[in-house]
Simulated assay, not measured.
Amino acid sequence: MAYESDEPVAMARFKIDNYQMNFYRLSVDPICQGQGVGKNLLKSLEAYAKSNDVSEIICKVRMNIKKNIKIYKDSGYFIFDDYTIDKPNNESLHIVSMRKFI
């Protein structure tokens, strides 16, 4: 969680397994977006991973959200896989898996 004036403004969920951290649902309050809150939370995740002997971090991003892919690429992540999820409403979600070695 990230806080501003004791109020939560961002969060991410993660799991560590076999020297690998998988994080998901990183979200920032829309009011705080564009202020570096998400990038700082990402740096905190990476610091926590390093302190727990994690050697790589993985996340999944919807391909159509280009700004998120760019944020992760700018932070040293790279795409290593992609796939499509077919939703019950005939909608397809294109997903990329991104990785960073730390």
Rank of each mutant, 00 (worst) to 15 (best):
G76T: 00
N40M: 09
D81Y: 07
A47S: 13
I57G: 01
D82P: 05
F78W: 13
S44Y: 12
I58C: 08
L45K: 02
L41H: 00
L93D: 11
S92E: 15
Y72C: 04
S44R: 10
I79R: 03
T84D: 12
K39C: 05
R62K: 08
E56P: 04
E91Y: 14
I79W: 03
S44E: 14
H94S: 11
D74R: 06
V54I: 08
K73W: 04
L45Q: 02
E91M: 11
N64C: 15
K66Y: 13
D81L: 08
A49F: 02
I69D: 00
S97H: 02
F78Q: 06
I95H: 07
R62Y: 06
D74N: 05
K60I: 07
V96W: 02
V61N: 00
S55T: 14
S55W: 11
Y83A: 04
K60V: 08
I71S: 05
M98A: 04
Y83F: 03
L45S: 01
K50R: 10
N90Q: 14
E91R: 13
I95G: 05
N52V: 05
K43H: 11
I58N: 05
D82M: 10
K60M: 09
D86A: 12
H94P: 08
E46W: 02
F101A: 08
V54D: 00
A47C: 13
Y48G: 10
Y72M: 02
A49H: 03
K100A: 03
S92C: 15
N89L: 14
A47P: 02
L41R: 02
V54A: 05
I65V: 11
N68M: 04
D74W: 06
D81S: 07
P88N: 08
D82L: 12
G38A: 09
F78D: 09
N68L: 07
I95W: 06
K43W: 11
H94D: 14
E46F: 01
K50E: 04
F78V: 13
E46S: 02
D86M: 12
R99A: 04
E91S: 07
S92P: 15
N40W: 07
I85A: 13
I71E: 06
K73M: 05
Y77D: 03
I69L: 02
K43D: 15
K100R: 12
K66H: 15
I65S: 10
R62T: 07
E91K: 10
V54C: 03
T84W: 12
R62P: 03
I58A: 04
S92W: 15
I85D: 11
L93F: 07
D86P: 08
S97T: 03
A47F: 09
D82H: 14
F78E: 13
T84Y: 11
K87D: 14
V96Y: 02
I65T: 14
L45G: 01
G76I: 00
K43M: 09
E91C: 06
Y48C: 13
L93H: 08
L41F: 04
S51E: 13
I69H: 01
R62W: 09
R99D: 07
E56R: 12
S55I: 13
I95D: 07
N64H: 15
I79D: 01
R99Q: 11
S97W: 01
E91G: 03
S44I: 10
A47M: 09
F80S: 07
L42S: 01
E56M: 09
S51I: 09
F101R: 03
K43L: 10
G76K: 00
I85S: 14
K73G: 00
K43I: 12
A49L: 06
I95T: 08
D53W: 13
M63A: 15
T84N: 10
N52T: 13
